[in-house]
């Protein structure tokens, strides 16, 4: 039942949180260049689905396939190709924006100072590079988290409410980044209840129902 050209597939994922059966037989597949938007009301399991894909939560049944192989037992390989932007920005308030990127994004790929500066410029906070992350506004922290995602240079993006705290320019930035990413053969999965790339040709939707 493999879909032609799909590099990422979720097959009949079932997950419980406590005694609630949240994800019921969720299946989908994604080709390079596609952006999957997961929608649904609060508490329906959008975050749970994303965390299951990341392996942060165990699924009761179901399997994930990446590039034609099951992810099971090859987690570290899969994780390296996966960039995750969660609810939390994963920033250290006492470190500067640059240091945050160096110490966290640097765990994945070897970074140069130029790469860090170029990415900070791309998300529009280059002038804040040497300020402690604590002193950034909520939107700027989100932009810094986006910079971390960009530097990870991952093929599959997992975004949980990526536009939280962002202004209209920030939302446009996220849309540009996603389009740019999928146009270069990447894949992206995002949970969102705001408008996000609603008319883009790359958009695919997955609606979760309670």
């Amino acid at each position: 039942m493999a879909v032609d050209g799909a590099v990422f597939e979720a097959r009949e994922i079932n997950a419980w949180r406590g005694d609630r059966h949240i994800l019921r037989d969720v299946s989908f597949s994604l080709r390079p260049g596609e952006f999957l938007k997961v929608t649904g009301p609060n508490g329906v399991g959008k975050t749970t689905l994303l965390r299951v894909i990341c392996g942060l939560l165990p699924a009761e049944t179901g399997e994930l396939w990446w590039r034609g192989k099951s992810v099971r037992g090859r987690r570290d390989e899969f994780n390296f190709e996966l960039g995750h932007l969660g609810h939390l920005n994963s920033l250290k308030g006492d470190l500067t924006a640059r240091e945050n990127l160096k110490f966290l994004a640097g765990l994945r790929t070897t970074l140069t100072a130029q790469a860090i500066d170029a990415t900070l410029d791309r998300v529009g906070i280059l002038s804040r590079g040497d300020l402690p992350a604590r002193s950034l506004s909520a939107g700027q922290k989100r932009r810094l988290a986006l910079a971390r995602l960009l530097l990870a240079d991952a093929a599959l993006w997992i975004l949980d409410e990526p536009v939280t705290n962002l202004d209209t320019a920030g939302i446009r930035l996220v849309e540009e980044l996603i389009v740019d990413h999928v146009e270069h053969g990447g894949l992206a999965i995002a949970a969102a209840h705001q408008r996000l790339l609603d008319d883009a040709p790359c958009l695919r939707s997955l609606e979760l129902e309670p």
Binding site: G55, L56, D76, F80, H84, H87, R108, R148
Partner: peptide, 18 residues
């Protein structure tokens, strides 16, 4: 609490060494 360990788990590096 700030989600750093989550990123460590997802970094593709062996978590034990980190």
């Amino acid at each position: 609490e700030d989600g750093t360990t989550e990123q460590w788990v997802l970094s593709g590096q062996p978590l034990g060494y980190l």
